[in-house]
């Protein structure tokens, strides 16, 4: 987990990939060379100074286990980027249910941007209350908010 100081500097990738499995496409995907997977079964390790939170690695990860969190986004709000492979996609500016790792609705999030990707792992940028930035990991799109 990055330190307070690192979070204060801007967006950073968080890896929820804690089991040793034979996998390394995140390391190949990072344009800044910030990710290392030494042996293919190792868990990824991040050079926090090199990472700028661009989110490129997120679209390549088969585990959909990389998220980006930016605590510098606003005074009360943080930005959370999540990978999303469901249809329909939410509409930018809409408000959606924010889900935690257990799928429980813990509040709402505003969709800031829907970044579509050619490989169909799309990235949704969410504005969430700061205290929920480490909890929100998915969304539930309500009717009338779809594109």
């Amino acid at each position: 987990m990055p330190s307070q100081e690192r979070f204060a500097k801007g967006p950073i990738a968080l890896f929820e990939c804690m089991q040793q499995i034979p996998c390394n496409p995140c390391a190949d995907a990072c344009p800044r060379g910030a990710i290392t997977v030494k042996e293919i079964n190792d868990c990824p390790s991040l050079n926090e100074e090199l990472c700028n939170g661009c989110g490129v690695c997120m679209t390549h990860c088969p585990g959909l286990s990389i998220f980006v969190v930016d605590y510098t986004y606003g005074k009360d709000a943080a930005l959370v980027k999540i990978p999303y492979e469901f249809s329909p996609l939410p509409e930018a500016k809409s408000v959606v249910d924010a889900l935690n790792r257990q799928g429980q609705c813990i509040g709402t999030a505003q969709v800031i941007r829907v970044q579509t990707s050619p490989n169909k792992t799309n990235i949704i940028w969410l504005s969430v209350p700061r205290e929920l930035a480490m909890e929100v990991r998915s969304i539930h799109v309500m009717k009338g908010e779809t594109s």
Binding site: C23, N24, P25, D28, H60, C61, G63, N119
Partner: peptide
Amino acid sequence: THKFFGSKAEFAGER
């Protein structure tokens, strides 16, 4: 339809 694990030589990250 999901992306595969592995490394580049086995096309990892591709569906």
